[in-house]
Structure formats: structure tokens, C-alpha cells
Amino acid sequence: MPELPVPRRPSGELEAEVLAALWAAGRPLTPQDVQQAVTGDLARTTVATILGRLHEKGTVLRTRVGRAYAYTPAVQDTAGLAARRMRTELDREPDRSTVLARFVSDLSADDERLLRELLADPAGEETA
């Protein structure tokens, strides 16, 4: 059967996306929920396989809900503390984006207003 050439993504990318979806949800997700919370058309079985693999590694926890499993990310107790400690450490540095390429930098009040306008208008007026 001829299929559209869907670019195959490496399994590491899929695992990352599934884990990100679990964290974003903030509640236990069944494989069916996860399937809807990731991009692309992943087969149910693919999602189940990825979740199984993450569970084996101890990255996610699962509980039985009815006939299916529901998954949540496993949180290390020390990680939250370490995150806060590093944040205060980094906040002390005068300009902190020297080593790590951060996704977003600080905003001025005007930047913030501009971004809210751009988000409200998806067509993107020539504001900048």
C-alpha cells in the first residue's frame, strides 16, 4: 500500500517528546492521551512501546487505571532543590547567557507588550 513519506524520527526524539507531554500535562496520562498530546501520527503501539521503554528506565511511573496504565514522570526529590540552588547561583552572574544557549532572554516592559500584541494577532502585523 503506498504511503506518504513521513520523515522517520529517531527514537530519542520521540522519547523526549513523550516525556515532555507527560510533564506538561501535570496529571497521569494513558497511552491514548499521550497519542493526542504529541505531534505527528504516532501509532498507539508506538506510543505504548515508548512509554514501556521510559518505564523500564525508571523515567516514568505507571499506575493501573481500569484496564490501561496511566503514566506520570518520576520526580527525583533532590532535583527540585538542585534546580533552585543553581538558579540562585546563575542569577548572581551579571550576564548569565555566556555558556548556555538559552531559549529566551530577558524582556523589557516594551518587549513584553510587543509580544502580547504579536500573540494576539497570529497574522503578525509589522509591529517590530
Binding site: 516525556l19 534546580a83 533552585r84 531559549f103 529566551v104
Partner: peptide, 23 residues
């Protein structure tokens, strides 16, 4: 920090922090 966080060993580390950050 990334080592102590949960995540996939070959790609993603998620920090249980409410403030938004990514790098």
C-alpha cells in the same frame, strides 16, 4: 543539575521547577 533531574539519558532533562527556562 541535569544529572539529578529526571529525563531520557540521551536527550532531555526535565527540572521540576515552576519557572520557565530552557537551554
Amino acid at each position: 543539575l541535569a544529572h539529578s533531574a529526571s529525563g531520557t539519558p540521551d536527550g532531555l532533562a526535565v527540572l521540576p521547577d515552576d519557572r520557565a527556562d530552557a537551554y
